[in-house]
């Protein structure tokens, strides 16, 4: 019997983690107990930013990370956070199909085998004040947590501010920051209605989590078990995307139920934001080079 340890970053109740737990159960069943995957949720074994490294270094055999958290390594990983490029589940899936092979090849260079990816609900803007056009964003302090997000905030005329996740609740209630870019899911999990009043469902992008395994650990399995892992992964991908889409409507509903003003972006705001998106897509192509150009062309076809 082989035992794998699987560190994941999100709490046990998060739908990504629930999906992974089901994946682990499926693997155990299909391999008739030959492969047992222990899921260590919520960064309890390795923290979010240590997980890829741990699998690469052989400390863990399989893991989950937010794909765009690897963007500093390669611009390719930032594709799903280029704002307003793919704003629906159908588009996000199309974008994933266009870019999957490239991501797989890039991870293979680190000795990692990609198993599957699942999207998060679309990202919106949480704020204390109404945002009717980009002029309303001028000078507003928005939390920045990655280079892409920082750039987007700058292009929107707002001020990116560094606040760590641990300090966010307090930073929002004391005004260190007054707006936040995140998904309906995260906004629900962090109970953002306690600090913020508006949710603008601008659907900027759908980031993805990826699940990957150490190629060495994978190759050490027998043929049947390998197939069991691949089958369970394929099932988890289909199930995860469906789950994510179903949950989105529920999350948005919950925001409303808890007294948040949930609004679509005004036409003026949407037009302004689309311009930001186009500019950032162009900047991304510049960084990602010919390969990036090819992926984008395939997606837009």
């Amino acid at each position: 019997q082989t035992a794998w340890d699987m560190p994941t970053p999100y709490p046990a109740t998060n739908f990504h983690t629930e999906n992974i737990q089901k994946f682990a159960d499926d693997v155990a069943q299909a391999s008739v107990g030959k492969l047992k995957i222990t899921v260590h949720a919520n960064g309890s074994l390795y923290k979010a930013n240590e997980i890829k490294r741990a699998v690469q270094g052989g400390q863990a055999q399989i893991g989950e990370v937010l794909l765009s958290s690897l963007a500093n390594e390669d611009a390719l990983y930032a594709l799903d956070t280029v704002p307003f490029l793919a704003t629906s589940y159908a588009d996000a899936l199309k974008l994933w199909r266009a870019s999957r092979a490239a991501v797989e090849a890039r991870l293979a260079k680190n000795g990692l085998k990609l198993l599957y990816a699942v999207a998060w609900p679309p990202q919106g803007i949480y704020s204390k004040t109404a945002l009717n056009s980009m002029a309303d964003l001028k000078g507003i302090k928005i939390r920045s947590y990655s280079p892409t997000v920082a750039r987007m905030i700058e292009l929107m005329g707002a001020q990116p501010v560094t606040v760590q996740a641990a300090d966010l609740t307090q930073a929002l209630s004391t005004g260190v920051v007054s707006a936040n870019l995140t998904s309906s899911a995260t906004g629900y999990d962090s109970k953002s209605w306690e600090q913020l009043d508006y949710y603008f469902d601008v659907q900027a992008w759908l980031p993805k989590n990826i699940v990957f395994v150490s190629q060495k650990a994978f190759d050490a399995l027998d043929g049947a078990t390998r197939q069991a892992v691949l089958d369970a992964a394929a099932a988890a991908e289909t199930r995860g995307w469906k789950l994510s889409e179903e949950k989105t409507a529920w999350y948005v509903d919950q925001l409303k139920t808890n007294g948040m003003k949930v609004l679509p972006p005004s036409d003026a705001l949407r037009a302004d934001l689309l311009q930001v998106g186009e500019r950032m897509a162009a900047e991304w192509v510049e960084k990602a080079g010919a390969d990036g150009q090819a992926i984008l062309a395939a997606y837009r076809k």
């Binding site: 930013n49 500093n72 390594e73 947590y145 990655s146 280079p147």
Partner: peptide
């Protein structure tokens, strides 16, 4: 040494 060999980069804004 391995961080160097892997080309491991911080995931924060600092890169």
């Amino acid at each position: 040494w391995e961080s160097h060999a892997f080309g491991d980069v911080s995931q924060g804004v600092d890169a």
